[in-house]
């Protein structure tokens, strides 16, 4: 286990250094920052035109949204390899080489890519969450910080699960996986809708299929005291872990049925 961890970080270091060899590497940081900031613009503009929705102000939405985005960004940074896996590694046949090495497949695939600029998303997200909390007048205690950290960790694990699931499914359908976009970049968009007004179908899909609300909305509700049962806020880690567990089963099944592709 320790050896695998060492390899993981060695891989990351290698990718980081090779990425920094490009002269304009910091340009990518700015580029991602623009993408990240422009994404919630529509929501902010809507609030400025229509005013608050009941008790929901723009700060409420930004808090829930930024928790979701930050955890997505973390997963994207740490598990980037799985994100690329179906599109590149599997199709090109490079996966066969990994199978020959006597090391954990999960670590090898997860660390097969790392881009520094992916870290911009979680950092911006965490800053936005901090802004929203101060706007809402919530004073942070140690317990509250604990809940938020757990939410981020749980969310990161959940999104890693999504990437692993995609890779697992890719063994069976080499093409036509675009719908998975609903579980990645489109999924955190649902946090733009205030939870009490969300249609039932959407709400149950994003709490029981993909435990999206458990890693963003309920922790935020517990921290700010929006009158939801408190224990719901502590479920982020277990919910993410369950999702990752199921995804790992699919991945295992896929690996076992893998017949080589590419040349």
């Amino acid at each position: 286990m320790i050896a695998e961890g060492k390899i993981y970080f060695k891989y990351l270091r290698m990718h980081l250094l090779s990425g920094m060899e490009y002269k304009g590497w910091w340009l990518m940081l700015i580029q991602v920052l623009v993408v990240v900031i422009s994404d919630p613009i529509a929501t902010v503009l809507l609030f400025s035109r229509f005013g608050n929705i009941g008790e929901w102000t723009v700060a409420h939405i930004i808090l829930v949204y930024s928790l979701a985005v930050a955890s997505f960004g973390l997963a994207e940074s740490l598990c980037r390899g799985f994100d690329y896996f179906p599109w590149q590694m599997l199709r090109s046949g490079d996966f066969d080489r990994l199978l020959l090495r006597p090391r954990s497949l999960f670590v090898q695939v997860a660390a097969s890519r790392f881009h520094l600029h992916r870290l911009v998303r979680p950092i911006t997200g965490i800053c936005a969450a901090g802004w929203a909390l101060s706007e809402l007048g919530v004073s942070l205690t140690l317990g509250k910080i604990g809940i938020l950290t757990m939410a981020l960790a749980g969310g990161c694990i959940m999104y890693c699960g999504v990437f692993v699931l995609t890779s697992g499914l890719a063994f069976f359908t080499i093409k036509g996986l675009d719908w998975i976009y609903i579980l990645t970049n489109a999924s955190y968009q649902i946090t733009r809708c205030p939870e009490p007004y969300m249609p039932k179908a959407l709400k149950s899909m994003f709490s029981f299929v993909l435990p999206m609300l458990f890693i963003s909305f309920y922790p935020a509700a517990t921290v700010c005291g929006w009158g939801y049962p408190e224990w719901l806020g502590y479920l982020s880690l277990p919910a993410g872990a369950v999702f990752l567990g199921v995804s790992l089963l699919v991945w295992r099944f896929g690996v076992r049925h893998y017949k080589s592709t590419g040349s």
């Binding site: 809507l46 035109r49 229509f50 005013g51 608050n52 929705i53 009941g54 809708c193 205030p194 007004y197």
Partner: peptide, 10 residues
């Protein structure tokens, strides 16, 4: 729909 129906200035 949420914005048009429930917001203050909807």
């Amino acid at each position: 729909t949420v914005f048009y129906t429930y917001s203050d200035n909807g």
